[in-house]
Design a protein around this nucleic acid. Structure first.
Length: 428
DNA sequence: TCTGGGGTCCTAGGACCC
DNA sequence: TCTGGGGTCCTAGGACCC
């Protein structure tokens, strides 16, 4: 038996913890570079702000009513880890699935609804994050149950009241479960995206119940094993296990849109160097090495009148490494002649691939399996952990705060829980 | 003026191996 | 006249997730 606990409007709710003036107001959190809405409070949803909506396309009349914040992932990540700690304290097996969702294994727990209700309240009380819990025999159904719990809480009357906030599908009679699945659009099922939803609908499969009851062989042959598995999960046969241990990353990507277009190779070089530094930091935090380094740049796809150019370069390293200096060297070599004269670029990124644990690397006849200075890198990371990110870096990277290619973040809130200077003050 | 930033898995087809 | 059967690896593209 699985439970899925999920923070409501997570980023918006995080912003409200330490900024009570945002409570009850239509609030929107923007993506990096202050581009699109990536979280909305209920009040903002009611104003018609949709997920991913470019904020500059919102009517000025509506926009004036909105409270806006730039994404503050440091804050959200910290709140998320606190919720993870609360959950792990209460149940033995937890899978942190994303920044705002965790699956719990409730197998063998007798009073599971009571436990789920207690956790629901505890997370709200201890972190300030409103949340919902869905319980069911499979992960896909637990996701669906979570959806029901949210809808039932948001629109009283749409579902029986005892499904609001904490919804246990396993408690329902077959007829009640059927009614829930018939009320769920097929596109709202976990694993069914926009494309598949359209293709399913054109075959007359419009609801979760339709998908559950569709002929399995047809689904398998027309959509493949992923769809077949989703159907099995809807039927109550668990195919997806709890993944307590996070598998190693296969790729690490650091990319950003720039606040301004960049035409100057020097600035591009600084931006790429900064992304390379961040990527190798992530690499070391995971305890991995990289065998392949890549870079890319993109012009502004929304400026159709401007000449477009989306170059990319990849290099295989002779020895795998997690040393920022070696990765940076590769990025600099790749970066020369990346840009075309006269073009202006809006976005760039660095990626690392062929990731491996150092002890899994194989020596090559002509080169050591691994290169770099671990002690130096550990020292660098330790300094930055202690004194703040980018306190120490390599001279070649443009890690100064003022660089013109930085993302726009005009409405950034404080790092209330991760930075001493930003600690909220209580007055009496 | 302004349009995010990460990831994963599956499949089909081609090249190649014995 | 006749032309196997079984694999692996890689890549590109398409789908999905938050």
């Amino acid at each position: 038996m699985f439970a899925l606990i999920d923070g409501n409007n997570f980023y918006a709710s995080c912003e409200r913890i330490f900024q009570p003036e945002l409570r009850g107001r239509p609030l929107v959190v923007l993506s990096n570079n202050d581009g699109c809405a990536i979280a909305r409070s209920e009040e903002a949803k009611a104003l018609g702000i949709t997920m991913g909506h470019p904020i500059h396309k919102v009517e000025p009349r509506v926009r004036r009513q909105l409270a806006i914040r730039s994404a503050n992932f440091g804050l959200y990540g910290d709140i998320s880890s606190r919720i993870g700690a609360i959950l792990r304290q209460a149940v033995p097996r937890v899978e942190v699935y994303s920044i705002d969702e965790s699956f719990l294994d409730l197998a063998g727990i007798a009073q599971r609804k009571a436990l789920a209700t207690e956790l629901h309240e505890r997370v709200q009380r201890w972190t300030g994050i409103p949340n919902c819990v869905g319980i069911a025999p499979t992960k896909t159904l637990a996701k669906l149950a979570n959806h029901v719990a949210k809808d039932a809480a948001r629109k009283p009357g749409s579902y029986p009241a005892d499904l609001a906030r904490v919804c246990d599908l396993a408690e329902l009679s077959p007829r009640q479960l059927d009614a829930v699945l018939r009320a769920t659009e097929v596109g709202d099922v976990w694993g069914i995206g926009r494309r598949w939803a359209a293709r399913l609908q054109s075959r007359g499969i419009a609801t979760a119940a339709d998908l559950r009851d569709a002929p399995s062989e047809d689904l398998l042959s027309e959509f493949g094993v992923v769809m077949a598995r989703t159907q099995r999960e809807l039927q109550g046969h668990s195919c997806l296990e709890l993944a307590e241990v996070e598998p190693d990353r296969k790729q690490i990507l650091v990319s950003r849109s720039f606040g301004e277009w960049i035409g100057d190779p020097q600035q591009m070089s600084e931006a790429l160097a900064t992304f390379a530094m961040r990527a190798t930091e992530k690499l070391r935090a995971q305890g991995l090495t990289a065998g392949v380094v890549g870079i890319f740049a993109e012009t502004d796809p929304f400026r159709l009148g401007m000449p477009q150019h989306n170059p990319s370069r990849t290099a295989q390293l002779t020895s795998a490494t997690s040393d920022s200096r070696l990765v940076l060297g590769a990025v600099r070599r790749l970066g020369t002649s990346l840009m075309r004269a006269g073009y202006r670029y809006k976005k760039a990124g660095v990626f690392l691939a062929d990731l491996a644990r150092p002890d899994q690397l194989q020596d090559d006849l002509f080169a050591p399996a691994r290169a770099g200075n671990d002690v130096l890198m550990e020292t660098l990371d330790a300094i930055n952990r202690r004194f703040g990110r980018n306190v120490a870096g390599l001279g070649a990277s443009g890690w100064q705060r003022s660089a013109c290619w930085h993302s726009r973040q005009e409405s950034l809130s404080g790092r209330f829980t991760t930075r001493m200077a930003d600690l909220p003050r209580a007055r009496c």
